[in-house]
Simulated assay, not measured.
Amino acid sequence: MHAQDRKPQQHSFAYGDEEITFTLRRQPSRVVPRVAIHVEPDGRVHVDAPSTAPLAKVLAAVKKRSRWISQHVSAAKARLAHVLPREYVSGESLHYLGRRYRLKVVVEPEASVKAYMRGPFIIVAVPKHDTTTIRSALDDWYCQRAREVFAQRFLVIAGPLQWVQELPPVRLRFMQRQWGNCSPAGRITLNPWLVRAPRVAIDYVLLHEMCHLKHHNHSRAFYSTLDRHMPNWREIKEQLDERAAEYLR
């Protein structure tokens, strides 16, 4: 969730009958010699390692976790297999702040295009049933909601963080695989679709990115800071990853 120090490289190796492929991200600023392995919600594998660590040592560390990686990649692919592509028709399931709503498309020839929430429904009014128009209206609605929710939660999360003297510049950008990232200059980019997740998951992502304002890496110091301000973040991240395929589609 942060800007990498070097261009990532692809590597792979055999594990039984399968091939495990991972992206190696070299980090000159990573002072901890430990190799960190991450399996993303879509099954991609990222490995963070210091720039001084020999490739052979990195490969040995990754191969040692082959079984763990294989299990998590398989679980991610299984979750994705059950997620159907969205058709933008009435009755489809939508999420907002972790709660499930139903899409209701209202077609009225004189209607102005707009989306709004009413009871258990997220309603989209359109002059004719056009998938692109419905999707655009929903994206605009989620963006507006995301701006409001993120602004509120940033104030809450930033309060106890002594290294945050003022809120960082923030922009929204729809992303297929990331919830957010933090540039070396301290600008945070967030995925509006994160507003589909529960508030506690939103808080975790915001805290994660603000910790990168202090530690521009995934070092032990970074995780210690994250642990100190949100001791149960691993459980929250696991739950978010389990629903990522639904929230990101």
Rank of each mutant, 00 (worst) to 15 (best):
E148L: 09
L194I: 01
R79P: 03
S12K: 02
V62A: 05
E235C: 03
R145F: 04
P50L: 07
D42S: 09
A111N: 13
S29A: 14
H208C: 02
K128G: 02
H215Q: 15
V164A: 05
V83I: 15
A245H: 08
S66P: 12
A53T: 15
Q152N: 10
E235F: 08
A75H: 14
L84R: 14
K7A: 07
C211V: 15
P50G: 05
P109C: 15
P8H: 12
H218Y: 12
P192E: 02
H38D: 13
V45Y: 02
R153V: 10
R220M: 08
D42V: 05
P184C: 07
I202P: 07
V32C: 11
G180K: 07
A49V: 11
K7W: 09
M1L: 06
V156S: 05
D17K: 12
F174D: 00
D130W: 08
L240Q: 00
L155P: 01
L103T: 09
Y88P: 00
D48M: 09
Y223I: 01
Y223P: 01
E110M: 06
L240K: 01
S136N: 14
A158K: 03
D203A: 08
L84I: 11
V83E: 11
M210A: 02
L24G: 04
A14I: 15
P33L: 13
P8N: 03
E87Y: 02
L161G: 11
R173C: 06
P169C: 10
E246Y: 10
H72G: 01
I37D: 07
A36Q: 13
R25P: 02
P168A: 04
P41V: 09
Q10I: 12
V45L: 15
E148V: 14
A221C: 01
P85T: 08
N232R: 05
Y15P: 00
V39H: 06
S12F: 00
K237M: 09
V200W: 12
S136R: 15
P41A: 10
E19L: 01
S136F: 06
K128C: 11
F174G: 00
V83M: 12
N232A: 06
L59Q: 07
R100N: 08
G180A: 03
I202Y: 03
V195T: 10
P33F: 12
R30P: 00
R86C: 02
S93P: 00
P41S: 07
I69G: 01
K104F: 07
H38K: 12
I123K: 15
F154E: 08
F150R: 00
G43A: 01
V106C: 13
T21C: 03
L213G: 12
K63E: 14
K114P: 04
R118C: 07
V126C: 05
D17Y: 10
R145D: 06
L84T: 12
P85N: 10
V106E: 08
P127Y: 10
H216G: 11
E209V: 04
V195C: 12
T132S: 14
E235M: 14
S66H: 11
A158V: 06
R118G: 10
V113Q: 09
H11W: 14
L97S: 15
L213H: 06
V83H: 10
Q71L: 13
V200H: 07
